[in-house]
Write a protein that binds this DNA or RNA. Sequence first.
DNA 1: TTATAAAATGTAACCGATTGCATAAGTTTT
DNA 2: AAAACTTATGCAATCGGTTACATTTTATAA
Lengths: 345, 345
Amino acid sequence: MTKEITIYDIARELKLSPATISRGLKSSKVINKGTVKRILEKAEELGYRHNNFASSLRKQKSHTIGVLLHELNSNFITSVLSGIEKITAEAGYDIIIAHSGESYEKEVSNVTNLFHKRVDGLIASLSFTTENLDHFKLFFEKNIPVIFFDRADENSDSTHVIIDNYKCGYTVTQHLVEQGCKRIVLLTSNLKRNVYAQRHRGYVDALFDAGIPYNKKLVMIKDLGEESAVAAAHEILKMKPRPDGLFVTNDFKAAVCMQELKRNGVKIPEDIAIVGFNNDAISKLIEPQLSTVNYPGKDMGEITARNLVNHLKGEGNIATTRRIIVKSDLIIRGSSLRKKVHLPL
Amino acid sequence: MTKEITIYDIARELKLSPATISRGLKSSKVINKGTVKRILEKAEELGYRHNNFASSLRKQKSHTIGVLLHELNSNFITSVLSGIEKITAEAGYDIIIAHSGESYEKEVSNVTNLFHKRVDGLIASLSFTTENLDHFKLFFEKNIPVIFFDRADENSDSTHVIIDNYKCGYTVTQHLVEQGCKRIVLLTSNLKRNVYAQRHRGYVDALFDAGIPYNKKLVMIKDLGEESAVAAAHEILKMKPRPDGLFVTNDFKAAVCMQELKRNGVKIPEDIAIVGFNNDAISKLIEPQLSTVNYPGKDMGEITARNLVNHLKGEGNIATTRRIIVKSDLIIRGSSLRKKVHLPL
DNA sequence: TTATAAAATGTAACCGATTGCATAAGTTTT
DNA sequence: AAAACTTATGCAATCGGTTACATTTTATAA
């Protein structure tokens, strides 16, 4: 364990004060250019490394942003992450990633932990089972900025970056109707999560506008696991009359479901047309390829991070922005495309 | 921005010294039990939060472990992560996750950053393009422990946790031979990475043992992208005579490849039997289901983290352990199972 | 050449928890 | 009742960088 080099060591060697070294290391303009050069060279020579603890302690800033994710295992979330990283890195912030694994308890402990770590700001996506935002109070009270993305509480005053889930739900349902579906199952998750609630509303309204009566029995609320997707498929198989359309609010679940339906002799999209959600890699690899809603993860990540960074730098204020909506669109593939499109001659 | 509560505030209120508060907050046995209780209650009452910066500065320990990943987007890696988290959390360590996105430059900057953040230890998996371990020198020189998992440099002295890639390569190839394959393509990546090099060696030896001549043209080295998997499929289609076996060292690539082959009328497994690697979720969802090698991610994560934590606590020394091999096994599914197995009567 | 402003550097007080050593009070031993 | 421990708490230095303010040096204006 070699001794650590500090600014005092550099100061001694160059016969300067620690203050000058501190400023010089940051290439401050108040320090003579030549001096700055000598300081940087000496620092390099001695193997100096900046002490974040001392710096953060004094500045009362960690220069770190916390990122709280509900999961890490989807294309979508890793795209968001890369967007966040790009922006925060450019702005010189470090990030600490915490993921809740969809568990409310873990989310609470992560939030508390990030709070104790004194992150300067927080980017968060709520877990599947989160019921309220009480655990974020710590942040709100101390005015530490928090921005939610994707999974947010739309009723709270907090700033959030989302897609128009209502419109997506509407568009997907409308698309299935156009493909001739009359009995469309919605396989979704906890309606307390804004993303699922809004998609559900879109589904309901699209059916209404198409003159198709809403049938509560066709809405299935399941968790995100593989087993529940298999179970859902079996329920669908037992329904009489058999549904002819299926809108699953998650690609993985849609894929599992489709597989199970196919195994039981259901033809996709002829018997049942299916649309997923998220445009995960999997959607292009299964057969038939899955129609889905493209989620602009990277954009969401960049927008979210940029807002937070600007706020931290004082060039903007997230408190004045409540909601930012990012574009998303329906990708139609084999799992739902039934009719040949005839262009008018 | 409310003022932060410190141990001095608590000390003043309770008419005790800061030293006693500091000890009391950790429920030290040298402090009277009643006093500890009063301290903890007062801390709670005032909304005290521990200052990691001051503590780390003084203790010269961050109580944080750096985790350097090559990517985040696979089942395997997220399992590893959950294993690491489980163990480190139990031991009271925080983790900082950095991922290189398979880029050597990013890896270097991440390693440097984690070094400056003064992590107490590092868990790492090398990026696809990493050529040497020079950037870890900082850690080695200061005796900060580093453990590699999965992607490691097996020739260096560093401690690493891996699976027996040689055996896996051998077993997969042997399995394909048993299925009647005579011309087996190996679609793999950069042989400088130990994982790919070892699998390649296993492939070569299994062919040799089966009396099948090694044909260099059947070994295709490609990067990890989707495009290169498609390109590989096309090369295979052009080969004469057509290969009858395909071993892809990555499930995603195997899936893309299989899709492209099927599109071109190749029957799986009759014309070409395919085996992937990693047992990603995707392997069970495509058709036919993909035979693959199960990678015990969570186990690897736990073992790696446990070794590091024990080392940090002084209850073990990673310097004495060079290599830990975790069990893995072949999962045979539809993509490679050709012959009906006839049990002897 | 002196007055004045600008540039460069220094002084010293923080930031908040930790811990070796000292002290004080209480208990047991002789 | 004095000596020898135990137990509980306090003192004060330390970790290393930052920054308001002061001081010195240098450049420019009068």
